[in-house]
């Protein structure tokens, strides 16, 4: 019973990290119809930056902020310098971000070296909480709370603010939104920045669990894809449900069908694609 509770809780914690990543991916898609293949690379970059800042300052808050802000700056720069020129060609965007992912991957190798690194959580968040025989890492509790908080903030911004209204309009119909005079240039830059910020923040927050290592960029990308395809491209609610589903399915799958663990991730996606191609919460 305890083992099951731990497994589900783990799934939720892992799902929280997935949500940080996939919410950014799905927002960028919803507003700009872009598949950002470099999203995993931004995640990795955020993790590395956070580890360096943590070493230099010892402040976890600074480290996490630096992880997010650095990728946000890079994202906005990329949007302005390049993606903007090819906004009407989705294949070009995909190929561009694919190239960007390779470049970021190689640059992190030059800067941070190739050895796997794990961020050490700050003193207040390390160690475990214990209830009798039930032991659970404190940091994971923090990750779950943070994931919920980010979800709440994003939901608030989307539902209550003018920016959010614009975003919703774009998700529903990008062409119409442009027709009614949404200032797309600024909106796109901001949204791509926010998307990159969430990727970098995800990397920083995930760093004490997943760490930073070569190849991680293309390991987390498929997970993001599964989440957003399941939840529905462009849907924030879908990303939340998808993240939790994938996190828990991964955790239980590894326990119940260890040899098939990769299938427990992808099988639901294949079924959803076959039955409901637009995803659980997506709009056709």
């Amino acid at each position: 019973m305890l083992a099951w509770a731990t497994l589900v809780l783990n799934g939720v914690a892992f799902g929280s990290v997935l949500f940080l990543m996939s919410s950014g991916f799905t927002l960028a898609f919803g507003v700009m119809r872009i598949i950002n293949v470099a999203h995993g690379a931004l995640y990795l970059l955020g993790a590395y930056v956070a580890i360096s800042v943590m070493h230099a300052t010892g402040s976890f808050v600074l480290a996490a902020a630096a992880g997010g802000v650095s990728t946000m700056a890079l994202g906005m720069l990329i949007q302005r310098l390049a993606l903007e020129r090819i906004y009407d060609n989705q294949l070009a965007q995909v190929l561009f971000t694919m190239g960007l992912a390779f470049v970021i991957g190689d640059v992190t190798l030059v800067v941070w070296g190739g050895h796997p690194q794990v961020l050490t959580a700050p003193a207040g968040l390390s160690g475990s909480v214990e209830f009798g025989p039930f032991i659970y890492p404190r940091y994971r509790v923090f990750v779950i709370i943070l994931g919920a908080a980010v979800a709440a903030i994003l939901w608030g911004v989307i539902a209550k603010t003018r920016l959010g209204a614009t975003v919703r309009a774009c998700v529903d119909d990008a062409e119409m939104a442009q027709g009614v005079g949404v200032h797309t240039r600024r909106l796109f830059t901001v949204m791509f920045g926010v998307s990159a910020f969430l990727a970098g923040l995800g990397g920083a927050i995930g760093a004490p669990i997943i760490g930073a290592a070569r190849g991680l960029d293309f390991e987390v990308l498929p997970l993001t894809l599964v989440v957003v395809i399941l939840g529905g491209l462009g849907s924030l609610g879908g990303a939340l449900v998808g993240s939790l589903f994938v996190g828990i399915a991964d955790s239980l799958g590894k326990a119940l069908f260890p040899e098939l663990s990769y299938f427990t991730l992808f099988a639901p996606m294949a079924i959803v694609l076959a039955v409901r191609p637009m995803g659980l919460f997506g709009k056709a």
């Binding site: 060609n89 694919m98 992912a101």
Partner: peptide, 11 residues
């Protein structure tokens, strides 16, 4: 790095 740059420059 080269491969990635070719991707970006081509498009």
């Amino acid at each position: 790095l080269v491969l990635g740059s070719i991707f970006m420059l081509t498009v």
